[in-house]
Design a protein around this nucleic acid. Structure first.
Length: 662
DNA sequence: AACAAGTTGTTTTTT
DNA sequence: ACAACTTGTT
């Protein structure tokens, strides 16, 4: 850092305090984006084109040119991505970027609603429902209103949650969603509409917000409260949105309203990497952006800095066969290297063994384990490999799929904490009452009905205890005591969990015969709480940005070691590795047989393969097992993914594994 | 009414 | 292979 004399600090001329070498560090297109600070900007950024770098430099440039950090809002797909970018911007500036607001749409919505939600009748202590909580509520309403006793099959709770969510995220009427994607339930439409009303009412009464509500209520706040809208728009004078191809209509509306008093909005995206349409995202959002903001300037980043030529050649071929694409051609100055390989394996275990052996080989060659990734369409595709890796003593982390935070025992513990911040949280009350011996759905429901009318439900519960038989009395008494013990002020979340474990461990042992394993998860949870001073923050984070470790690797506590990355393709978004393995590239699995129905879904599978393959810098292996029976199709699968079908064979090597061949 | 055992149906991806 | 629903027992 340059040293300046302490005198005359306020005197002009204002030399730039820090010198960032923009011209040296950025190419022409990137530089243009970074230097254009005002007005709406759309950046079409191909895979590996230095999109993150561009965002980082632009944040730095904004701050350097005098924009206060707290006036910048950076919306990304994960909080990790936001933190990483702000860290890098901070390094450039040699100053902290802590005060830049950054995170996901959902976490930003959460923060804003806690602060300004009162304007739309929302208390600051609302509880966030994750998907399974939401399903529990829907299930409760479905049974209590007798929808499950209908003559014709009524949708299951997860289907119901899915239908409701689709309707919200695509901003379409419920009946349209049903007719479009669930036409076999069309005779239930009136009931579904009714049930969704009940669900909405239930949540509003108890200060519960599901993931979709976070976006919906923020939009409501911005739409109906002009003063809040103006205030927020004036606060966030510069807005940057990453991964714009994966935003949905609600998010686009939110952005539009946040730009109420200015149009300093920059969005970055790549239509070829749109992989979240199941969540209501629509890559046409990108093309509609200039319609929302007619003054939009469009920039294209097409130089790829990630992959060697052969990999880029293949990925270009994959995406060029997309039915609908906005033409762009990625080029690289990286040198040549090995051709990607398409590897056929006799069966799943051969595939796993091949991957293991190759990984060990790469490590011999000096490639760090953490610079290698195995990617797959669905989380369970990795099960066999996980076993094989354990056998070979290859340490790994798994991203995507079931999170340990979603396991029953962790949810049990969190439920106790949740009612401390929102005593109306009937979902959590239900959960913890059902843990008590002798209490089932009926009694739990009755108890909740009585105590939630009181101002102090805990006190009300205490008053109820004498009504019940002895065995239940004891259970309820223990619960009350435990809750009272953690209600004291000035307790950290970590201390609270410590107390609760005293109460919960006996229940854990009674309920699960594999309790030692689950106990380890709870220890892990305890460690995580240590990072938080305030309970509401901890709970919001657990719902919105849970630790991304999956169940399987929680046990391994040696965090510092380098580890191989196993990840779903969705969770690999935006990342890159020296060598990438894509396993189960078997037609019927990837693309999944479920996607054969519609062109749109099939095309999304293609983009998914594109995203996976473009993560690779130096090495790419696409593997598939053969002779796999598929129940959905009722046939044996043996062909590699169809997206490679008509690509000339000289774009990749073809390997076939035989018993001693590797 | 709660719990245990037995039967049937259903499978991605994530905030 | 697993979870949701159904039936049978306490």
């Amino acid at each position: 850092m340059k040293q300046y004399p302490l005198k005359r600090p306020t005197q002009p001329p204002r030399e730039p305090r820090f010198t960032i070498k923009y011209e040296e560090d950025l190419n022409t297109a990137q530089l243009a984006v970074v230097m254009t600070l005002e007005g709406p900007i759309l950046v079409i950024a191909g895979a590996g084109s230095g999109k993150t770098r561009t965002l980082v430099y632009r944040v730095a440039r904004l701050i350097e040119s005098g924009v206060p950090p707290q006036r910048i809002l950076l919306l990304t797909f994960t909080r990790r991505a936001a933190q990483e970018m702000l860290k890098r911007a901070g390094l450039l500036l040699q100053a902290s970027c802590d005060r830049v607001s950054g995170g996901t749409f959902h976490s930003t919505a959460n923060a804003l609603l806690r602060k300004y939600g009162e304007a739309i009748g929302l208390g600051s202590s609302f509880t966030i429902l994750d998907r399974s909580d939401a399903e529990d509520v829907i299930h409760l309403l479905r049974t209590s209103h007798g929808y499950n006793e209908k003559e014709r099959r009524f949708p299951r709770k997860n289907t119901l949650a899915e239908i409701f969510s689709q309707s919200v995220n695509k901003m379409l009427p419920l009946e349209e969603v049903v007719m479009e994607d669930y036409s076999h339930f069309s005779q239930h439409i009136p009931d579904l509409v009714q049930l969704e009303k009940l669900y909405t009412h239930y949540k509003r009464q108890r200060m519960l917000l599901d993931y979709d509500d976070l976006l919906v209520r923020l939009l409501e706040l911005l739409e109906t409260q002009p003063s809040v809208r103006r205030r927020l728009s004036e606060t966030y004078q510069y807005i940057l949105v990453d991964e714009y191809q994966d935003t949905n209509k609600i998010q686009a509306r939110i952005i539009r309203l946040l730009c109420d008093t200015h149009e300093n909005i920059m969005v970055v995206g790549d239509d070829a990497q749109s992989i979240y349409s199941f969540r209501g995202a629509n890559f046409r959002n990108i093309m509609d952006f200039p319609k929302e903001f007619p003054a939009t300037r469009i920039f294209r980043l097409e130089e790829n800095y990630r992959s060697i030529q052969p990999i880029l050649d293949l990925t270009n071929e994959i995406i060029n066969r997309a039915k609908e694409k906005y033409p762009k051609h990625l080029f690289t100055r990286k040198g040549d290297g090995r051709l990607p390989a398409l590897v056929q394996a006799e069966n799943e275990n051969f595939q796993s063994r091949f991957v293991c052996e190759k990984i060990l080989e790469l490590r011999e060659e000096g490639v760090s384990l953490s610079d290698i990734a195995v990617l797959f369409r669905s989380s369970f595709h990795a099960f066999d490999l996980e076993i094989e890796l354990a056998r070979c003593n290859v340490p790994f982390v798994k991203r995507g799929g079931f999170k340990f935070i979603e396991t029953a025992h962790v949810k049990d513990v969190l439920a106790h904490l949740r009612i401390l911040t929102n005593s109306l949280d009937a979902v959590s009350w239900m959960r913890l009452l059902l843990l008590i011996e002798g209490v089932g759905p009926k009694k739990a429901h009755a108890i909740i009905g009585t105590i939630s009318k009181e101002g102090d439900p805990l006190k009300a519960l205490k008053g109820l205890i004498s009504r019940y038989p002895n065995e239940i009395q004891r259970g309820l008494m223990d619960l009350v005591k435990a809750l009272e013990a953690v209600t004291e002020d000035h307790m950290t979340p970590s201390e609270q969990i410590g107390f609760l474990y005293h109460y919960y461990f006996p229940i854990l042992q009674r309920k699960y015969d594999d309790y030692p394993k689950r106990m380890k998860d709870l220890e892990h949870l305890h460690t995580i709480t240590g990072r938080y001073q305030r309970l509401p923050e901890f709970l919001a984070d657990m719902a919105l940005e849970p630790p991304d470790e999956s169940v399987s690797d929680v046990a391994g506590l040696d965090r510092e070691d380098e580890k191989l990355v196993l990840s779903t393709i969705h969770s690999a978004k935006g990342l890159e590795w020296h060598t990438v393995f894509i396993i189960w590239a078997l037609d019927g699995k990837f693309p999944s047989a479920y996607s054969f129905m519609t062109d749109e879904e099939l095309e999304e599978e293609r983009r998914l393969l594109y995203v996976a393959a473009t993560r690779a810098k130096q090495g790419l292996f696409i593997t598939y097992p053969i002779n796999v029976y598929d129940k959905v199709l009722g046939s044996v699968l043996s062909k590699p993914t169809r997206f490679l079908d008509d690509i000339p064979k000289d774009y990749y090597d073809t390997w076939s594994l035989i018993e001693e061949g590797f």
